[in-house]
Amino acid sequence: MEISQKNESRDALLNALRTLAHYVNEVANGQLSLLLSTGMVLASQPSSTQTPTMVEKVQLRDGRLSGQLRLDFTPVKAAWEYEVEIGTMASTGEITWNKVILTTSSRGNVLSEMEPGVRYCVRIRTRNGKGTGDWCEPVSLIAR
């Protein structure tokens, strides 16, 4: 009973602190001097001096199950997230891009619901507060 009371009290306190932080952010309206005057510890904002570079060393491999592909690539330091575009390649070599996924991870991305026997292409670009990087060269693999 004591543990459940502590957990309930903790949840109530966290909720009150979230509400307070939201209120302070609304009143300050982004003014750093007002935020600093509250005495609250500010979370550092992700910062970058330029648009992130292009993703390199993209690898597309078979997943553990049929209809899955695994995507890995070298992380880019200045990137906040990665935009992954998935498409299919026709027999003529033309790529039709039809699905976009956002991820913050550069390792172990599992692309599921792939139709076996179809050649899928993937290209990636980086994003941060300064903008969006260039698309990498597409890589392809036939789903099993």
Results as ranks from 00 to 15, higher is better:
50 Q>S: 14
46 P>H: 01
44 S>R: 09
33 S>T: 14
37 S>M: 08
50 Q>W: 08
19 T>P: 02
30 G>L: 07
57 K>R: 10
10 R>M: 11
23 Y>E: 03
52 P>F: 01
25 N>Q: 06
14 L>M: 15
25 N>E: 01
53 T>P: 06
40 M>K: 05
48 S>A: 07
33 S>I: 14
48 S>G: 01
20 L>N: 08
27 V>T: 10
37 S>H: 00
37 S>C: 06
33 S>Y: 09
53 T>E: 10
29 N>C: 07
55 V>G: 01
26 E>Y: 01
49 T>V: 05
11 D>N: 10
46 P>C: 00
28 A>V: 04
21 A>V: 02
39 G>I: 03
41 V>C: 06
26 E>L: 01
27 V>M: 05
23 Y>T: 04
53 T>N: 12
19 T>G: 02
43 A>V: 03
57 K>T: 13
40 M>N: 01
18 R>I: 05
17 L>W: 10
35 L>W: 00
13 L>A: 06
51 T>F: 00
41 V>T: 15
35 L>T: 03
10 R>L: 12
43 A>D: 04
59 Q>L: 12
38 T>C: 08
45 Q>M: 07
54 M>D: 12
32 L>R: 09
19 T>C: 05
21 A>L: 12
12 A>C: 07
15 N>Q: 14
53 T>Q: 10
33 S>H: 15
29 N>Y: 06
18 R>W: 08
36 L>K: 15
19 T>L: 02
56 E>R: 14
15 N>D: 15
16 A>L: 08
57 K>M: 11
22 H>E: 13
22 H>I: 11
45 Q>N: 07
50 Q>N: 13
32 L>N: 10
28 A>L: 04
26 E>A: 04
48 S>T: 05
25 N>R: 05
51 T>K: 01
49 T>H: 01
19 T>Q: 05
19 T>M: 02
34 L>R: 12
39 G>N: 04
57 K>E: 11
8 E>M: 05
